[in-house]
Design a protein around this nucleic acid. Structure first.
Lengths: 233, 233
DNA sequence: CAATGAGATAATGTCGACATTTTATGATAA
DNA sequence: TTATCATAAAATGTCGACATTATCTCATTG
C-alpha cells in the first residue's frame, strides 16, 4: 500500500529528501525538543515512511549537527547550551562580516540592485510583522542573503547558510515573541538602512562592523534569557 | 554469517561510521575518481556491508559535498572543476586567516606552546618528506591546526576542517609529487617560520596576510595544472 | 544506413523480518 | 525496606527480497 503510493505520484523524489526537509523544520522550530530521543516508531508514524529513508535523513542531519547518535541507543536531537549558542552566533557574525567585506570588493551593479529590491520588499512588510512573523523573517533573511551573495563564493555561502540554520534553532526556541518588541525592531530597521548606505558607498570596513554588531545583538538578548537547562533535557 | 560477524567483535561501532571514514578516504585519495558512479554492488564488495549502512554513509558524504545523488540513478563522486577548486581554496584562505586573527587575540600560553611543539615535530621530519609524504602532510596539518585552535571556536574549527578535507581532495589528485619539489618546499618552511614569528609577536595583521598567501600558493600551482577535464569524466 | 522502439538486463529505493542490545519489570534476599 | 539480579519488553541496526526505474541490446523500419 505504502509501496504503491510511491508509484502513484510518479514524480516523487527520493523519499529521504522530503523527510530531511520536514524533519529539519521540526527540529529547528522546536517540535522536537533539544535532547529529545527520536524513536523510530514515532518518526515512522509522523512521516509515513519506513526506517531506511529515516536513517538516511537522520544521517544527513547528523553531519549538520542537528542530531546526535549513540552507538546502539538511537538518535537524539542535538542538545543546546549557552556555550554553543555563543559560539554559533559569534562565528556567524564573523562569517557574515567576511561575506560583506568580499561583497563590497566584488559586488557589481546587479548585486546593488538586488539589495535595494530586497530592502524594499522587507520594508513594505514592516507593519505586518505582528501578523505573520514567519513571512517577515523570510524577507529579512532574503535581504541579508542578497547582500552576502555579492561575495560570489558558493562555498562560503553554503557555510553561511549552515550557520544560519543552526542559529535559527536558538532564535525559534526563545525569541518567538521578543521580535515583536517595537524598540528593538525600530533599531533593527535603522541598522539596516545604515548598512545599505555603507554598502552603496563602498565602505567595506564600516559595513563589516555594522553587520557584526547587527548579528551579535540577538545573541546578547538570548544570553540573558533564563530557562535554558529545562529545554536542554 | 556476515550477520554473526558483528556479534563476534562485540566492540564494533555502528557499521555506517566505519564505512564513512573508509569511503571518505577512498574519495579524497582518488581511489574513486571524480564523477565516477558508485555502484552498490561494488561498494558492498569492497566494504563488506549491506546496502543500508552504505546508503547511510553516502547520505553523510552527501551533505559534505563529496558525493552527489540523482533521483533514481544512484550516487556519484562529486565532480571537480577549476572553478570549485578556486572557490574552495579562496574560502579556505579567508577562513584560516579568520582563525589566525582570532587566535592572536584570544590565544594563551598553552596555545603558543602547542605551536612550538607542532613546529618542532614538523621540522624534524623535513628530510623525510620524500620517504613518507603522507606522514609529513599529517604533521604539516597538525602544525596549522595547532595555530587555528587558538580561536577557541568549535563551530569555526569544524568549518575549517570541512574545507580542509575538500581541498585535500584536489591536492591529492594533482599535487602528489609536486610537493617533493625542493624549491617550493624550502619556501614553505620559510613561510612557516615567518608565521610563527608573527604569531608570537602578537602581530595579527601580518599573520593573517602570511597565512592567506601561504594557503593560496598551492591554488596557483593547481591553476596551471592541465588535465583536469579528463579526471572530471 | 541511421533512427526508433520493444524487450531484456541491471541497478536503485523501500519495506518487512530477524538478531542483538538496551531498558523496564518484578521477584528474591539481606 | 532496599538492593541485586534474572526475566520480559522494547528498540536499534542490518540484511535479503521485491517493486520500480533506468540502461543496454538489437531487430525493425523509413
Amino acid at each position: 500500500m505504502t509501496k504503491t503510493r510511491l508509484a502513484i505520484d510518479s514524480r516523487s523524489d527520493n523519499s529521504a529528501l522530503k523527510v530531511v526537509g520536514d524533519l529539519k523544520q521540526d527540529i529547528l522550530t522546536g517540535y522536537f525538543k533539544p535532547g529529545e530521543k527520536l524513536k523510530m516508531a514515532r518518526l515512522k508514524e509522523r512521516y509515513q515512511v519506513g526506517v531506511s529513508p529515516l536513517r538516511e535523513a537522520l544521517s544527513q542531519l547528523l553531519i549538520e549537527q542537528l542530531v546526535v547518535v549513540e552507538n546502539q541507543r538511537g538518535f537524539k536531537v542535538h542538545p543546546v547550551s549557552r556555550e554553543e549558542m555563543r559560539d554559533i552566533y559569534a562565528t556567524r557574525a564573523e562569517i557574515e562580516a567576511l561575506c560583506v567585506g568580499l561583497a563590497v570588493e566584488k559586488g557589481d551593479d546587479e548585486w546593488e540592485a538586488g539589495i535595494l529590491a530586497a530592502a524594499h520588499t522587507m520594508h513594505k512588510f514592516g507593519e505586518m510583522i505582528d501578523k505573520d512573523p514567519q513571512e517577515w523573517e523570510r524577507r529579512h533573511q532574503a535581504f541579508h542573503t542578497a547582500i552576502a551573495r555579492g561575495c560570489n563564493s558558493p562555498t562560503l555561502l553554503q557555510v553561511r547558510r549552515s550557520l544560519y540554520e543552526k542559529a535559527s534553532r536558538y532564535r525559534n526556541l526563545w525569541l518567538k515573541e521578543n521580535m515583536a518588541n517595537s524598540d528593538v525592531f525600530d533599531a533593527n530597521q535603522k541598522e539596516h538602512q545604515q548598512l545599505v548606505d555603507a554598502l552603496l558607498d563602498g565602505d567595506g570596513d564600516r559595513a563589516r562592523e555594522l553587520i557584526r554588531q547587527h548579528l551579535l545583538s540577538p545573541s546578547r538578548a538570548l544570553e540573558q534569557t533564563p530557562g535554558l537547562e529545562e529545554l536542554a533535557g
